[in-house]
Write a protein that binds this DNA or RNA. Structure first.
Length: 644
RNA sequence: GCCGGUUUAGCUCAGUCGGUAGAGCAACUGAUUUGUAAUCAGUAGGUCGCGGGUUCGACUCCUGCAACCGGCACCA
């Protein structure tokens, strides 16, 4: 006999080989009916799986959050069955559960189009209505290989091929259709329910490799209930409303046009926001001991050969040739320029660390398909800096950068930060010994950060070609992750350029170079802020902070007075004296995301008051002009300059 | 770069079977002096992304290119 322990602590004996379903039935038929899976010692399993040891068992109902991945996984299988039933000749590959849904990759001569989705979805509902049992079978590897190859399923065949000979594998059958699958699954297709939807079609490379065939992927989502599905679709709409490309246009911040793909045309308001960020960062850096510099935009090919850029990623560089046949490149990075700047003039160990910062504009020829608003562009501004130091200063510098980054992110409300260590990539420069040292140094930093309670992880092979990096990823208001800051330890570039300092022993020493950025790309960070705040920028970031709106022309003089006083306090103010109804003005400025409307009519003018309307609120407060402006001026002070 | 889709007025979008274009909002003009998310009326605005082709005739059909959108790959 084996002993099965239930969540309430009760334990009962059963015959070995008893299934979860048997146990559920023995407790109550209704339990058996509403249960779709179980966990054995915490691991999700098929309800039909035989149990042959002492375990802790918990039944999982369809509305259990743990059942969600089963619903989605089963839906992926049904999607594949539907696709093959409707479109003979379609080959199946893989169909995993992903965040918020699932997908299935198919191979077809002609890829699926959006028009196919409603048809497939209808067929899926049919298959779900059939409510066929989902049954697991264990096949030998060779049996499975034979089966799929006979069916002409070359991709499944390749997957099975990769499995060691002699191993058995799981086959899940629903009716006549079956798929190779790790499982677990629910007892029948009917359990999937109706709360699912096919979302989009896309191309995707087989095994994520761009040298392999392109498959046709169908994305879908599924939930336990219609309410959950609707809530999810609603969230997607909300995210669309935050889209910086849309808000950027509506708020008059920037635009793009064909002549400059991947290049931002910043309008006055957008540039004001951009410059507010630059000024803020400039103050934080200055306080952090950095010196700001500026280095050339266009540099000779020879320099990029020395740095290794020419060899490792020329295809990403904008090149230009002059009349005299000399080849130059627009800088894709600032580091070589900073090494040259460091080299200019003899440095002593007493000078270290030398911290050079630049708001450097870099150009990178990104693949056309990668461009995305201001988030991914071909010309952008980095808050870049390079710290030239000795090996034993790395830890201290990296921790200092860490503190600065976290403090800066906090000023924008980003408190959920993950630090990821990216190690040596295949395409790289420098000796393995140098990489060992650099990775060890950053590894120690990562350990220290973890010790301080930061979330950390490791991404093997994701480092820069000249060194490993720590990547700072922040989470925005709707939970999306953005990689922004970075700290990179580089034992290569200074040596390649022959940079040195004089050590305490009078010998020449090669400095270590720490690359770091905090916003990363200013363009991108601006986009992240727009989406994070959904366009409702805090007062200190808002390009137009206040619009003074009059109700009648009789208040015009007073409006001028309000604007003048506000400007004296450093606030950025517009006036709307147009002959329009106040509701019209309120609507227009609300749509333009102006954070504060000060409304002045006859009453306010007579009593030296202002009516205050904040963006996103219907409330209208009334306050004395001087007090209102003083409060706004305080609120508009950048966080690093606030005294109280 | 790859797969699929899209491109018509400043914005959002109609446009049948091939007969050289239409709405709402915005803009402009006039009237309205208005109390917290759209006052009324009028006017103007288009090389239908760009280039070839088919046709008596192309926004419409074919074709090349570009940009953009959704993914994939990429993100040094």
């Amino acid at each position: 006999m084996i002993h099965v322990t239930f969540p309430d602590g009760a334990s009962r004996p059963f015959e070995p080989g008893v299934s979860g379903l048997d146990i559920a039935k023995s407790i109550s038929p209704s339990l058996a009916k509403r249960t779709v899976a179980m966990t054995l010692d915490g691991a999700l399993a098929d309800l039909a799986a035989p149990i042959d040891r002492d375990v802790k068992l918990e039944f999982v109902g369809r509305d259990d959050p743990r059942a969600l991945e089963l619903i989605r996984h089963d839906a992926a299988h049904v999607l594949a069955e539907a696709a093959q039933e409707l479109f003979p000749g379609t080959q199946v590959t893989i169909g995993p559960v992903i965040e918020n849904g699932f997908y299935y990759d198919f191979y077809r001569e002609t890829p699926f189009t959006v028009e196919d989705l409603p048809v497939i979805e209808k067929k899926m509902r049919e298959i779900i209505a059939r409510d066929r049992p989902i049954v697991k079978e264990v096949w030998s590897r060779d049996q499975a290989l034979d089966f799929f190859e006979k069916k002409g399923e070359a991709f499944k065949g390749e997957l099975i091929d990769a499995i060691p000979a002699g191993e058995n594998l799981n086959i899940y059958k629903q009716g006549d259709w079956l798929d190779l699958c790790r499982g677990p699954h629910m007892p029948s297709t009917g359990k999937i329910g109706a709360a699912f939807k096919l979302m989009k079609v896309a191309g995707a490379y087989w095994r994520g490799d761009h040298n392999r065939p392109m498959l046709s992927r169908i994305y879908g989502t599924a939930f336990a209930t219609k309410e959950d599905l609707d809530a999810y679709l609603h969230r997607l709409e909300e995210a669309e409303r935050r889209d910086h490309r849309r808000l950027g246009r509506e708020m008059g911040l920037f635009h793009f046009q064909e002549e400059g793909p991947g290049a931002v045309f910043w309008h006055a308001k957008g540039w004001t926001l951009f410059q507010t960020l630059v000024s803020y960062m400039r103050r934080r850096q200055k306080a952090g001991g950095y010196q700001e510099v500026n280095t050339p935009q266009v540099l000779d090919r020879a320099l990029w050969e020395t740095s290794g850029h020419w060899q490792t990623y020329r295809e990403h560089m904008f090149l230009t040739k002059t009349e005299d046949e000399r080849t130059f490149a627009l800088k894709p990075m600032n580091c070589p320029g900073h090494v040259l700047l460091f080299k200019n003039g003899l440095k002593s160990y007493r000078d270290l660390p030398v911290k050079i910062a630049e708001f450097g504009i870099v150009h990178r020829y990104e693949p056309s398909g990668a461009l995305h608003g201001v988030m991914r562009v071909r010309a952008f501004t980095q808050d870049d800096a390079h710290i030239f130091c000795s090996e034993d200063q790395i830890m201290r510098e990296a921790l200092e950068i860490n503190d600065l980054i976290l403090s800066i992110y906090g000023d924008f409300g980003f408190d959920d930060v993950v630090v990821k260590l990216s190690t040596r990539p295949e395409k790289r420069v420098g000796s393995d010994e140098a990489w060992d040292k650099a990775e060890a140094a950053l590894g120690k930093v990562l350990e220290e950060l973890a010790r301080r309670g930061l979330k950390t992880s490791v991404q093997p092979g994701e480092g820069a070609f000249y060194g490993p990096k720590l990547e700072y990823t922040l989470r925005d208001a709707i939970g999306r992750e953005w990689q922004c800051g970075t700290t990179q330890v580089d034992f290569n570039l200074p040596g390649r350029f022959g940079a040195f300092y004089i050590g305490a022993d009078s010998e020449k020493k090669t400095p270590v170079m720490v690359h770091r950025a905090m916003f990363g790309s200013l363009e991108r960070f601006t986009g992240i802020l727009i989406e994070h705040y959904a366009g409702h920028l805090p007062l200190w970031l808002s390009p137009t902070q206040i619009v003074v709106c009059t109700i009648t022309q009789e208040a015009d003089d007073y409006a001028h007075e309000i604007a003048a006083s506000a400007r004296k306090l450093g606030l950025s103010v517009d006036m709307d004296l147009r002959n329009e109804k106040i509701s019209y003005k309120v609507r227009e400025h609300s749509l333009a995301k102006v954070p504060v409307l000060l409304i002045a009519g006859k009453k306010e003018a007579a009593e030296r008051l202002v009516s205050i309307r904040r963006l996103g609120s219907q409330e209208q407060g009334s306050a004395k002009l001087d007090e209102a402006l003083a409060a706004l001026a305080h609120e508009a002070t950048p966080p690093d300059l606030k005294t109280a």
